[in-house]
Lab assay of single mutants.
Amino acid sequence: KFNKELSVAGREIVTLPNLNDPQKKAFIFSLWDDPSQSANLLAEAKKLNDAQAPK
């Protein structure tokens, strides 16, 4: 279960257009550290992506 959630969340995070590479890497490392938090980490990444969207 975690492997699928981890890969789905990881793929989504790397495609978020408004995150820079260090931010993406930080989220990916957090996913590896605790795969059970993949849904929460993906939600946080999406929030940050939205907040950094060009206005």
Rank of each mutant, 00 (worst) to 15 (best):
E12A: 07
F29N: 11
R11S: 08
F27M: 04
S38L: 13
A51Q: 13
P17R: 04
N20F: 08
F2A: 05
G10C: 13
I13R: 00
G10Q: 15
K25Q: 12
N20P: 02
S38R: 05
A45M: 01
L6M: 10
L42H: 01
E5G: 08
L31T: 02
F27W: 01
K47C: 08
Q37L: 07
K25E: 13
D21I: 10
N18M: 01
F27P: 02
S38F: 13
N3E: 13
Q23M: 03
F27H: 01
K24G: 03
K4I: 13
V14P: 02
E12W: 11
S7Y: 14
A9I: 15
S7A: 13
V14Y: 13
A9S: 07
E5L: 11
K47W: 08
P54M: 09
K4P: 11
A9Y: 11
E5D: 11
T15V: 08
F2V: 10
K55T: 11
K55S: 14
D50C: 08
K47E: 08
L16A: 02
A51Y: 07
Q37E: 10
T15L: 14
T15I: 07
R11M: 12
K1H: 11
L16R: 01
E44H: 05
A26Y: 15
D33H: 13
P22N: 15
L41Y: 04
F27N: 01
L41D: 00
E44M: 11
K4G: 10
K24Y: 03
K46R: 12
S36C: 05
G10L: 15
Q23I: 05
P54E: 09
N3K: 08
A51S: 08
E44W: 09
E44C: 12
A43F: 08
P35L: 03
I28E: 04
K47L: 09
Q52L: 07
A51H: 07
L19F: 00
D21K: 09
D21V: 09
N49S: 05
N18V: 00
P35V: 03
V14N: 13
K4W: 13
P54R: 07
R11P: 03
N3T: 10
N49D: 04
K46P: 00
A45V: 00
G10K: 10
L6F: 07
A9K: 04
T15Y: 08
Q37Y: 04
A43I: 10
P17A: 08
S36F: 07
L41H: 02
N40D: 09
N20E: 06
A45S: 02
P22S: 15
A26I: 06
E44K: 08
P35R: 00
W32Y: 13
